[in-house]
Amino acid sequence: MPKLEKFAFWKRPMPDEWRSRTFWKDTGWAYIYLLPALIILGIFTFYPFFSTFRLSLYRVSFTNFPGTYVGLDHFRYIFGDRYFWRALWNTLIIVGTSVPITLLLALVVANLLNKSLRFRTFARTSFFLSYITPMVAVIMVWQLMYNESFGLINYLIGLIGVDRIAWLNSPQYALPAVIILSIWRYVGYQAIILLAGMQGIDQMYYEAAKIDGASGFQVWRKITVPLLTPQIFFLLIISMIGSFKMFTEVYVLFTGTSGPLKSAETLVYYIMRQGFFFTPHYGRAAAASIVLFAIIFIVTLFQMQVAKKRVHYQ
C-alpha cells in the first residue's frame, strides 16, 4: 500500500517526466490498456459506490428515481433500530470468534502438513476440499447435519453424552452454527496459504537455530511465526473483511431467513433485508451499508498500521 505522503502531490515539485513527450504518449497507451477494466469498474463499482451515499439521503422510489430527499433520517432510523445493533453485534461476534479460531487451527494444520508424514497429500486435499466446493451445496448438507431430531451432529455429540441441541431452531445456537460452518469452510484454505509460506522460509534459518540448540517450540515462535507474518497478516485482512460481509451462509442455512427470531442476522443480512426483502427500504439499506463500509475501512487501516510494525519480510 503506498504511503499517504505519496498523495500529497501539492507539496512536491512538478516531476521531470511531465515535460517528456514520450511520457504523455505512454499515458495515452496505458489508458487504452486500462480502458475495458475502467469502464466496467466505473459503471458497476465506482458509480454505485457513490450512488449509495446519495441514496442513503433519499426515500428511494423507482418511479421518480432517486425519490424524496429525507436528509439523515435513514441513519437516525437504523441507529434507533435494535435489529441493526443486534446485526452489528452478531457480526462482531462472528469476526471476533471465527477469524482467530480459523487462523489458529490453520496454523496447527499447516504445521502438521509441513511435517514429513505419509498421506499428507491426501490430507492436504481433504482440508482443501471444503474451500473449493460450491458454498450453497455444502451448506445444504450442514443444514441436514444440524437437524435437531435426525442430524448427524446431534447423534455424534450424543455418543459422548451431550444432549440434543436445536442448532437451527434456537436463538442461542444459531450463531454458533454459522461460525462452526465458516471455520470448517475456510480453515483448509488458510492452512494452504500458511503452508506455502512455511515452505518458502529459507532452510538456513532452521539450520542456524539447530546449531544454536534451539528447542522445537523456540524455533516455531522465533523463526516460523515471525517469518509467516506476511501470510498471517494477509489472511487476517481477508478473513476479517470476509466475515464482515457474511450473508450467504446465514441465508441458505436458515432457508432464506436469518435464524429463529433473527438471532443469526448479520449486518449484510440486515442490509439485504432492508433493501430487497418484503417491503424494501433502500435508503435504510444504503445507510447501513455505509456504516459497514466505514467499519471495514477503519479496521483495515488499523491493521495496516499494525502490519507496518509487526510484519517481517525475509
Partner: peptide
C-alpha cells in the same frame, strides 16, 4: 491505490444501485 481500495467495498453495498443500472 483507488483500485485496491475497492476491495474493501462490501459487494452488497453496490447491489441496489447496480440493480437500478
Amino acid at each position: 491505490a483507488i483500485l485496491l481500495g475497492t476491495l474493501m467495498i462490501p459487494g452488497q453495498m453496490l447491489l441496489l444501485p447496480n440493480y437500478v443500472t
